[in-house]
């Protein structure tokens, strides 16, 4: 029976900042981590060089790094990265603007929530890539195609997290607001939004990962300029296989960077919030 309660309090404890770890220990951990990465890369290198994995299929890491270094100097590379990043950011912003007000509304009204529950449930389970052929017909190999996909894919986690956040508003604050006859707009601004904010932030994190996946995917299949299209083009010629892997590495680096950025931003902006420990996955 105790087991049932085990995960919650323990999680809270794990998250609490303990005494700052000794610097020496941190260096040691960093050393071990670097060693692990090095071993992994060496194994990859060895697998290709020894011929266990044919070089026509997998490029060894040194060659990928070399190619990546060369690519950094090209205009083509930076414009591809720029296109992908642009689509991604715009797509996320569009879904934020659509999802958060809707989420506040649906979260605050039980009637509306119940009316739209089935529809939302249905729409959010549609795999977003399903829209790709239709979007390609409508917009062709242009940014709008990817935007449509990204918006459709990331609007649902944001909407659900916002609704969830509204449901989590402290009943006491709600009563206080009522007792002081707070005006509706003030209530939204000073009670609803702040308490929903960390949940929206979690939604942004989930949506950001999803969006990057969808941007790269629609570029890949639709030939829309960006990292994905470069991967698709490079795949077709043997000499360009290292570039293909280099672009995969770049896309991954983009994903890691954004994850770190969002987590840091969240920590800074929401450090005041008691519910900031929330880690719900949508």
């Amino acid at each position: 029976m105790t087991v049932a309660f085990a995960d919650r309090p323990a999680r809270g404890r794990a998250k609490r900042p303990g005494p700052a770890p000794v610097i020496g220990q941190r260096v040691k951990v960093l050393g071990i981590q670097t060693a692990c990465v090095a071993v992994l890369l060496a194994a990859w290198q060895l697998a290709v060089v020894s011929g266990a994995v044919p070089e026509s299929e997998v490029t060894q890491p040194t060659a990928v790094a070399h190619r990546l270094w060369d690519m950094l100097a090209t205009q083509e590379f930076w414009s591809a990265v720029g296109e992908t990043a642009h689509t991604w950011v715009i797509g996320l912003l569009v879904s934020l603007v659509v999802a958060v007000p809707l989420g506040l509304l649906l979260g605050a009204s039980t009637l509306l929530y119940r009316m739209f529950r089935v529809t939302i449930d249905f729409l959010r389970t549609i795999p977003p890539v399903v829209l790709l052929p239709l979007a390609l017909l409508l917009y062709g190999a242009r940014e709008q195609t990817a935007l449509l996909l990204v918006a459709f894919g990331s609007v649902w986690p944001l909407l659900l997290q916002t609704m969830y956040g509204v449901h989590q508003v402290d009943p006491v604050s709600r009563d206080v607001a009522r007792a002081y006859q707070l005006r509706r707009l003030d209530f939204v601004r000073s009670v609803l939004l702040p308490s929903a904010a960390p949940f929206v932030a979690t939604g942004v994190r989930i949506a950001a990962t999803m969006s990057l996946l969808l941007v790269v995917g629609s570029e890949l299949l639709g030939g829309i300029p960006g990292i994905g299209a470069q991967i698709a083009v490079d795949q077709t010629s043997a000499a360009q296989i290292p570039s293909m892997y280099a672009y995969v590495v770049v896309a991954t680096a983009l994903g890691v960077a954004v994850n770190l950025l969002i987590v840091r931003l969240e920590r800074r902006v929401l450090s005041w919030h008691s519910a900031h420990k929330s880690q719900q996955e949508a």
């Binding site: 692990c36 969808l214 995917g217 890949l220 795949q235 293909m244």
Partner: peptide
């Protein structure tokens, strides 16, 4: 877990659709 953290963090961030062409090759 601590030793593998950077690797796991990176592998998780791979936009998996970008791997499909490589998977077709392999």
């Amino acid at each position: 877990g601590e030793a593998l953290a950077p690797i796991l963090e990176a592998l998780r961030a791979v936009p998996a659709l970008a791997l499909v062409p490589a998977a077709v090759l392999i």
